[in-house]
């Protein structure tokens, strides 16, 4: 199937940078756990054996160490922010690199004997695989890091946390890894919608260049307004944002999201088939 071949091709194009990103994340997080835990153990030894602070008093002052705490350190937030930035950048690069530079690979892609929308799908699939891949690796890393912490710090000085508790205490991880499956689909559904709209805007720009950039921005803003319209309209006419019951609002947003995704795919299909230019 040509779609899968294209996905494979796109993945292979990014794999080197991706492995570097994964490497940085793994090394930084694990190093972070080891460094921070050893620091803490150092503090404990200093306080208890040298300054003869009672254990209880030490814990009162510094508290126990926990994975939740560590996830908020730069060792964790740094590489995660880097991955996010890289993937955000890649959202644009995945299209524009085929036009720019010495090679014009877009010729080759557009001339493949396959539906051109497959290019769109393959690029979006690649982005999602990369994001979910990072999430998966993070989920594998957490138990491992938990193990390291357990090895370095004795039981009395650490708070034992489950993976879910670590995610909840980190504050930010629950955006990528919500604890409820439905929320997972909601968050990634919204993410999917945003990427589809962004890709449509990029295709506008690639079809009509400068004018297209303007059209793309207008399209993006319109989609945003449409998605937020239940809240905007109720505020505007003065009935208040709680005019809709929460579950009604959920269903309305779901419908609007589906409309936006469908419209974006339809427009993208039209643009990539009829209007795109090399």
């Amino acid at each position: 199937m040509n779609y899968l071949k294209l996905v494979n091709f796109e993945v292979n194009r990014f794999i080197k940078i991706y492995i570097v990103l994964l490497g940085i994340t793994m090394v930084s997080q694990i190093a972070g756990v080891i460094v921070k835990a050893n620091q803490y153990v150092g503090d404990v030894n200093q306080a208890i054996y040298e300054e003869l602070t009672p254990k209880a008093e030490f814990l009162e002052m510094y508290g126990q160490i926990s994975m939740g705490m560590l996830t908020r350190s730069m060792w964790f937030t740094g590489p995660i922010a880097l991955c996010i930035a890289a993937l955000l950048f890649y959202l644009f690069l995945i299209w524009y690199r085929d036009w720019f530079g010495k090679n014009t690979f877009i010729y080759r892609l557009l001339m493949l004997p396959t539906a051109r929308l497959n290019l769109f799908w393959s690029k979006i699939t690649t982005i999602f695989l990369m994001v979910l891949g990072l999430v998966a690796v993070q989920l594998l890393l957490l138990p491992l890091e938990n193990l390291f912490l357990r090895m370095i710090v004795s039981k009395d000085f650490r708070t034992e946390l489950s993976i879910i508790q670590i995610i909840e205490q980190s504050g930010y991880m629950s955006v990528f890894i919500p604890t409820q499956l439905l929320e997972f689909f909601i968050n990634y559904g919204i993410g999917f919608m945003v990427v589809v709209v962004l890709f449509t805007a990029i295709l506008f720009e690639r079809s009509f260049r400068f004018k297209g950039m303007f059209l793309g921005i207008v399209y993006g803003v319109s989609c945003t307004l449409l998605f937020l319209s239940p809240i905007l309209i109720t505020e505007l006419i003065g009935v208040g944002a709680n005019y809709f019951y929460p579950n009604e609002l959920f269903l309305i947003e779901l419908a609007l999201g589906l409309i936006i995704v469908a419209a974006s795919i339809y427009v993208s299909h039209f643009l990539i088939k009829r209007k795109i230019t090399v």
Binding site: V7, L129, A136, I177, L181
Partner: peptide, 19 residues
């Protein structure tokens, strides 16, 4: 396809097991 396959399998197993 091994790279694509590896990534997909890791995602399914890791995220799947978690949920």
């Amino acid at each position: 396809y091994w790279k694509l396959l590896t990534i997909s399998v890791v995602i399914v197993i890791s995220v799947g097991t978690f949920y």
